[in-house]
Design a protein around this nucleic acid. Structure first.
Length: 505
RNA sequence: GCGCCCAUAGCUCAGUCGGUAGAGCAGCUGACUCUUAAUCAGCGGGUCCAAGGUUCGAGUCCUUGUGGGCGCACCA
């Protein structure tokens, strides 16, 4: 078992100092877990508003993070949602008995403080305590104050400690929230309708991925957790809504690494009467808007550089990008010749790779690592884009773009395929690929085809991963740093608190 | 799934050649009425991730397992 194990064992010693102090409060007639507390200010309001608050009485509340006792006077800091503020307690002000109760406080306890605002000799805004109230007794030790919590496993499994200790982590998830709010307000301002579609699906689709499966007892039916919400959102376009989007948790039963978490947040949007060019413009405007929200200017951090998003974004057809980077002409769609070309420039290609797979492989190995500046890669082979509409002029290609910046894919969009017969033949091709052993091949969805047969207007659609986007906008090195509780292997601790769901109410 | 690395006190980390485990913070006792990584004196605290093995002797070496990190593969 790992090192976190002992820390989650029950605290069992009756001599535990925090338990002793808890009893002391109770024996003094004080409830160590009161129900409510009325504040007048947050810490940051007091610090920032000092000039107007000097000498005035304020009431704040927060968690004790540091403690410096000097006999008959004591300094400590508390932290609330807005930040930290120092408090100063003096025996002369409080009286010996009340001052003595400071001994029953520990780092990690929540307290409410009332007192007058002043500045110490060293210039720090401080509250001179007239009254203090225990708001919640903490029974466990906080991580070390100087280094904070460093161990990544502990940071992810017990994120609350990470948030208490590491201010930059606390800030990052505020930023994530602002990004999500920014997406919503951008789309809402343009007349989009936010909708919700099923997570439990009897037939999964909309992406190439392996699903999680689950079971519904009363229906005695297998369900999949969705891998995308594309096919349901298109049904809503069929139904007459013209601009819809969904913020959706998707689930893909695949590997975990720096860029992938099994559950992740996808945002998909669909616009009736639009094509992929319209979507491109919308997406660029959105990202510039978000970057400005996060970083103050339309820029993103990338390694030691700053990328300016306000310059024109590059736009390169996929096969041109490959040709420019490798010298290969991959317009010939014969799989054997495509594999041979790719191998001739040293790209590793499996023997059963289809033409589309070869293109994808060469691109991701040779081109994508170079795509630092924002770049739209456009016009993909039909074979690897079963839901995108045929290109209006380029044979064998579809109208599709993926956006890359900081070498990451941050979005995928097409002019949506609305010809039901073409869609059916694409599904049939995917079914054939599935028979050839492609576990991620798209499944044939008769219900979706029926919807298309009723008629879907010309439509442009876009999907982008919020987690990826947060990584790119903030420069986070791992997807686990932008997900509050990333998926980790279960521990024996997790098993100990779990129970048999079949026996539950 | 494969390769490499890591796991020692609540937290952050040392631990030499294999000789029975240390520091700082946190905690406890005492001193101290403007400190801020407060200071000073003293004290307590360990399933060295687990199970085997080698050895007179294992935190240290070997094997297997568990958890994590990084890279590769797959994917977004």
């Amino acid at each position: 078992m790992n090192s976190s194990d002992s820390a989650v064992n029950p605290i069992d010693t009756a001599q535990d100092p925090r338990r002793v102090k808890l009893d002391a409060w109770r024996q003094a007639g004080v409830d160590p877990y009161p129900h409510h507390y009325e504040r007048t200010h947050h810490a940051a309001q007091v610090v920032d508003g000092f000039s107007g608050l000097e000498g005035k009485r304020v009431t704040v509340a927060g968690r004790i993070l540091s403690w410096r006792a000097h006999g008959k006077s004591t300094f400590f800091h508390i932290q609330d949602g807005s930040g930290q503020i120092q408090a100063y307690a003096k025996a002369d002000d409080l009286g010996a008995e009340v001052y003595g109760r400071l001994d029953w406080l520990d780092l990690g306890d929540f307290v409410g403080l009332s007192g007058d605002v002043f500045k110490t000799r060293t210039g720090e805004v401080t509250i001179k305590i007239a009254l203090f109230t225990l708001l919640s007794k903490s029974l466990r030790t906080l991580p070390e104050k100087w280094h904070g919590l460093v161990d990544k496993e502990l940071r992810y499994r017990r994120r609350y400690l990470d948030l208490i200790t590491n201010a930059e982590v606390r800030q990052l998830f505020i930023t994530r929230s602002k990004i999500l709010t920014g997406v919503r307000s951008f789309l809402d301002a343009r007349g989009f309708l936010e909708v919700e579609t099923p997570v439990l699906q009897s037939l999964y689709g909309g992406a190439a991925a392996r699903p999680f499966t689950t079971h519904h007892n009363a229906l005695d039916a297998e369900f999949y957790l969705r891998i995308a919400d594309e096919l349901y959102l298109k049904r809503l376009i069929v139904g007459g809504y013209e601009k819809v989007y969904e913020v959706c948790k998707d689930f893909r039963n695949e590997g975990i690494d720096r860029d992938h978490n099994p559950e992740f947040t996808m945002i998909e949007l669909y616009v009736a009467y639009a094509d992929y060019r319209d979507i491109m413009n919308l997406f660029r405007d959105l990202l510039i808007d978000l970057a400005a929200t996060v970083n103050g200017r339309p820029t993103i951090p990338y390694e030691s550089r700053t990328l300016d998003l306000s310059v024109p974004w590059k736009e390169i057809p996929l096969l041109d990008a490959i040709a420019a980077r490798t010298g290969l002409d991959l317009t010939d769609t014969d799989p054997g010749r495509a594999r041979a070309s790719a191998r001739s420039v040293g790209v590793d290609i499996p023997d059963d790779a289809s033409y589309g797979k070869v293109v994808d492989e060469v691109f991701s190995q040779r081109v994508q690592p170079e795509l630092v500046e924002p770049t739209f890669i456009i016009d993909y082979p039909e074979e690897i884009s079963p839901l995108a509409k045929k290109h209006r002029t380029k044979k064998g290609l579809v109208e599709r773009f993926e956006l890359f910046m900081a070498c990451k894919e941050v979005g995928n969009a097409f002019t949506e395929l609305n010809d039901p017969d073409d869609q059916r033949s694409r599904f049939m091709a995917m079914a054939e690929a599935a028979r050839q052993g492609d576990a991620e091949a798209h499944r044939l969805d008769e219900d979706f085809l029926m919807a298309l047969e009723h008629g879907m207007p010309p439509t442009g659609g876009l999907g982008f991963g919020l987690d990826r986007l947060v990584m790119v906008l903030t420069g986070a090195p791992s997807i686990r740093e932008v997900i509050l509780f990333p998926t980790l292997r279960p521990t024996s601790v997790g098993e100990a608190v779990s129970h048999d769901p079949e026996s539950d109410v």
